[in-house]
Amino acid sequence: MKNLFIFFCFGAVAALAGALWITRPITVDPETFKSIDSDASAGELVFALGACASCHATPGGEKLVLAGGREFTTDYGTFIAPNISSSKDQGIGTWSQADFFNAMRQGTSPEGKHYFPAFPYASYARMNDQDIANLWAFMATLPASEQPSEPHRLTFPFNLRATVGFWKALYFRTAYVRPPAENERGRYLVEAIGHCAECHTPRTALGGLQIERWMAGAPDPSGKGKVPGLTPAQLDWSEGDIAYYLETGFTPDFDSVGGSMAAVIDGTSQLPSVDLAAIAAYIKALPAIE
């Protein structure tokens, strides 16, 4: 009996070790992108559309000082955006380009740990090498802040970064959700850089996107209010209405954007009209989901 118990314990430990190994943080091969010439000025638009400042700028602070501190209340506890300014002590000023690619593509930190998916790397992972390199170059030009990052306040077991490995195994898919049809650019802007689904798609109890309800709207993570759905079942705007909204922040009846979507419009308002039209076409082509 005793031997059976020992055998069981050994098996359980071995299974856990195996699972942790399988779900370990993955890193990218730096050889694949080291020859890319980055363009900081082109990265400014990527930065704007990625809405990096909407999470990482200190509330009430300068938009281009990515000192962090914004809190995100969720069912798992409170995430606090870290300092990702160019500070060498408090920010990401000592990162290499490979570190940045690991964060954006794999959700893996320079210390080899999983990032929590409150950082939407599951969407950013679809970004092309050039855009990530350009973004990296632009962010290096932004001011440093010496404001220390605060630790997340998460409940057990969600505070264990190792659990993110299991989340990744379940939900981290870099394949696009929608077919490209004739609008590959729109799909890229929405599903990769714009990471629209991160808010507009409901999540499972474990925080994975419910792909079968893609863009059908979701409860606000704070528990108050809803993030509206964008499928034809929820949104009857024309392509022109959508493009104008993304450009100006005005709805078709000339209410103006507010809340967290305002930061998104900060970015989309800088896009050329052809990109706005591509996003609008993508949204109009979504299947209706009640």
């Binding site: 606000d220 108050k224 209010g225 809803k226 993030v227 509206p228 103006s256 954007v257 507010g258 809340g259 967290s260 305002a262 930061a263």
Partner: peptide
């Protein structure tokens, strides 16, 4: 004004 002072629907 809507950004900081108006709640989501």
């Amino acid at each position: 004004c809507h950004r900081p002072y108006r709640a989501r629907n």
